[in-house]
Amino acid sequence: MASPWWKVARSEEVTSAKPLAVDIGDQPVVLWRDAQGIARALEDRCPHRRAPLSRGCIRDNGWIQCGYHGWSYDGETGRLKDIPNMKDEQKFPPVYKAAAYAVAESGGFVSVNLDQKTSAPAPVAEQTFPLGGTTVVGLSQGEWIDALFDDPGLVLNIRGVQPTPYLMSELREEDGLLVMERFCQWGKLHYPSYATAEFPITLITRTRPDTGETEVVLRDDSFRTLLTAQLAPVQAARGVTQVRWRAKLGDELKGRHALALRRKGSFEVRDAVDAAALRVLIRSASHHGQQLRDKLLSAPAVSGPSVSEPSVPAPTISAAA
């Protein structure tokens, strides 16, 4: 299994003004943009005295400079370029370097691959969604995805949208992704969903088995796409998950509820999960999901790399609408 690309930042979060500290699991990573505007990633640990490089600064030439003793590193190779005060010898042996990670940028996300020798292709997205945000949740990535599967209302807040427990299609594999569809109502559950004949809206999620990246599509009963969102939950330190997301509204919004989505803050990833509700949430879809994910991830890599990697679909659903 090739090492996955983790969407650790939104493009606008990575600048040449200030380093950005993120983590992938327990691995701290520092991100910034070099003088050419290329996003760079190094281990967030200066190999001199282990200070976090993210507490340093970015030099005009694009090197990152540790804030402790001012050692500077080149982002592409991680190699040490400069030790202050050392006027004479500024040539350092190749072992003088910080761990550099592969970085890719596409669709308004910056992705990092922890395996420097990875052969997996970097993700390519056709478009960048205008809305975006970053949310830190006190839940592990696995639990967060399970909650998304079992009750998306616990982790997402879409204005006026009330997910029901009623699944329109159970979790299943589709093109290497975990796909499911759930009926939703507008507003509070004013009548019991089990007694409802028709539902006005539906929520589709398509989740990668390796990274948990999920595309969310909200559609009305006329098959109009009301909203498309991309969620990138990345396991961070201490069992916390950082979720980066981008979203866009559909072109054709009809009805009072749908139009209300235009207002600011219509979509958000919740930064707090109702723990009491989560505790008693039945593991239904997610239980099945774990089995499916395991199956997809353990799929034999006998065939070429094009088959062993889950395909990353372009956001076709909004186009189809």
Partner: peptide, 25 residues
């Protein structure tokens, strides 16, 4: 503190990864 505080846990275990040193060290 802004440096020594994050440094400290990184020096709690023996690691095969060696620090780099300059002649000022």
């Amino acid at each position: 503190s802004s440096m020594t505080n994050p440094q400290s846990p990184r020096y709690m275990d023996l690691t095969p990864r060696k620090d780099l040193h300059s002649r000022f060290d």
